[in-house]
């Protein structure tokens, strides 16, 4: 396996990560002699993110991509498996011990306004991380510097979150995340709720910040245009597992998993010439419940190519150098032609 396992340059490594949410009344199910049902939001993920790279995580709603991102930052519980940060196992770290690591790993949240404490002014929001961690004055950015970093006017310092536009609120969220000099950023739908031009500016800002601050990103999105623009590597998630992972260009050009193909095909093509002669593979139905995933390959009920062999759970196997897919028929799928 070459999922960049045990690479010394991995900033974040995830091994066999599962996040299962058990029913609150699980003890009653036990009493009745039944296996309590669990929602398997993340169901066994291995992932390595190398320092300086941008990994995009895509998948439908309910595929577990946000939960995975939150679990890496320990905002969602890891019920099984391990999370390593800079080679250190952080899965079991508790309380203050873990909080000391927080500055190095930050998150940009999906809801630009909702993630800002509504009664604090921008200046207080941006200095809040310093008060939390008691950062000495000489190691702090000033509010003006932080605002400048995200290309905002210093006059915003006295505003309240509800007085900001979506793009401004998003930038404040980024500035707050950057205030503690993080190495690793999880960005959950960084363009959610923004219009096209604001979204484009945020993406270019993220790209330039990555260069100037030496950041590593895990970008969670369902927007393949973001992938195109930012990603070095692309991981496709389906029902809590990685269906396919590899260098972004390779995955986009020659997807090896039928689910990836269907995702790519679902993007509308504005150019009518390119649209012609293109066979679109559209997904029937909806993503199954993570409470009761299908047996064998969890994608088989929606897969056009499914065969008898798909009754077995497929391993995440190499299809090309550094390109892995969890499909028995991946070579066949790739031969069937490029989607776009």
């Amino acid at each position: 396996m070459t999922n960049d396992h045990d690479r010394p340059d991995a900033i974040v490594s995830v091994r066999g990560l599962r996040t299962h949410y058990v029913d609150r009344q699980w003890w009653f199910q036990r009493l009745r002699g039944r296996q309590p049902a669990a929602v398997r939001a993340v169901d066994g993920v291995d992932l390595d993110i190398r320092r300086g790279e941008v990994v995009c995580l895509v998948g439908e709603s309910g595929s577990g991509k946000t939960t995975l991102g939150r679990a890496i930052l320990r905002l969602a519980p890891a019920t099984h498996g391990q999370i390593f940060f800079e080679g250190r196992d952080i899965t079991g770290l508790r309380g203050a011990e873990f909080r000391r690591l927080r500055p190095k790993m930050q998150m940009i949240f999906q809801d630009p306004h909702g993630s800002l404490s509504p009664r604090l002014r921008v200046s207080d929001l941006l200095t809040e991380p310093y008060r939390i961690h008691d950062v000495p004055a000489d190691q702090r950015y000033s509010v003006a510097e932080l605002l400048e970093m995200v290309e905002l006017s210093a006059t915003l310092a006295e505003k309240y979150p509800h007085e900001l536009s979506g793009g401004q609120a998003r930038r404040i969220g980024i500035a707050r995340a950057l205030s503690l000099h993080p190495d690793f950023l999880v960005a959950d739908e960084p363009t959610a709720g923004l219009d096209v031009s604001a979204a484009a500016k945020i993406l270019s800002l993220m790209r330039s910040l990555r260069a100037s601050h030496g950041l590593t990103y895990l970008v969670i999105t369902h927007n393949l245009r973001i992938v195109d623009y930012l990603a070095d590597r692309l991981a496709v998630m389906y029902l809590g597992r990685v269906a396919e992972i590899g260098p972004a260009e390779q995955v986009l050009d020659a997807p090896a998993h039928p689910y990836t193909r269907a995702l790519l095909d679902s993007v509308s093509e504005p150019d009518p010439h390119r649209r012609q002669g293109r066979r679109r593979l559209l997904l029937p139905g909806e993503i199954p419940s993570p409470k009761n995933p299908p047996s064998g390959c969890s994608f088989h009920p929606r897969c056009r190519f499914a065969e008898a062999v798909c009754r077995e759970v497929p391993p995440l196997a190499e299809v090309d150098s550094r390109h892995l897919a969890s499909c028995h028929l991946s070579s066949k799928i790739r031969a069937a032609g490029t989607p776009v």
């Binding site: 905002l75 930050q106 949240f109 909702g114 993630s115 404490s117 509504p118 809040e128």
Partner: peptide, 25 residues
Amino acid sequence: SPFIEAERALGAGTLRIIGVHVLPN
């Protein structure tokens, strides 16, 4: 609400979250 999770992500302890971000609201 997301801003409480944001505070947790920043490393704020429970007392601070309750005192500074929950209480005023």
